[in-house]
Design a protein around this nucleic acid. Structure first.
Lengths: 109, 109
DNA sequence: CTACACGTGTCGCTAAACTATATATGTAGA
DNA sequence: TCTACATATATAGTTTAGCGACACGTGTAG
């Protein structure tokens, strides 16, 4: 069961989204599900965080969207990474690693 | 050299502060220095983040302060953990570990 | 006398994430 | 049939953290 207070750390949501889209086009709902799954039910992305984040990334030109029929037969907006998005992803990944390492240094000191 | 855009992740600052104070009373300026040092110059806590955070923690009863002469001979405000602060620290540490692990799962998938 | 390290603090801003809500459809079960 | 739930997108309004830019004051080194 997902924890009540999921409280995403600011700045990591974009990274998570970018990473999840990377292998191929996905729609918002599916992205959230996949993150929940691969994080072993720890990371729960709220709709109120998810869709604004997706719109934000699209406005920045990091992802593009296209309406398509989903596996369940409904229409859904499929997002894919742009070239800029791929670049941004690797930058942010680097930043996360650097940051997480630094935190560990302080915490485990 | 510290990176320009240090951008602390929201929510981790309190944890860092609590951890740094844990071994014994420290003043704000010293805390920031120590974090910079132990993180190998990666984590730079800005004054505009540091002091409000310290006040916040004190208001919540997680730390207490006392004016004392510092090693340099000036007056400085020394903060120490309260019992509630210690408890909060272990809770937040747990949360961070759980969270960082989950992120890694998604990122390294 | 100037610059820098020490030390605390605030104001105003931005932006991220959350809660709650709205909308719409299909399907399973009582 | 009615209800509940999964699928799917979206926004309005709120909170709050962290940041940049200041302001204040002292002591010391050059």
């Amino acid at each position: 069961m997902p924890q009540k207070k999921s409280d995403l750390l600011q700045g990591t949501l974009d990274l998570l989204l970018l990473k999840t889209i990377a292998p191929g086009p996905m729609h918002g709902y599916g992205i959230a599900q996949r993150i929940l799954l691969t994080s072993k039910e720890v990371l729960q992305v709220q709709q109120g965080s998810l869709y604004p984040a997706l719109h934000r990334l699209e406005r920045k030109g990091l992802i593009t969207s296209k309406w398509k029929e989903s596996e369940s037969g409904r229409m859904a907006k499929y997002y894919s990474l742009t070239a800029a998005g791929k670049k941004q992803f690797s930058t942010e990944l680097e930043h996360w690693r650097r940051y997480a390492t630094a935190i560990s240094l302080v915490l485990e000191a």
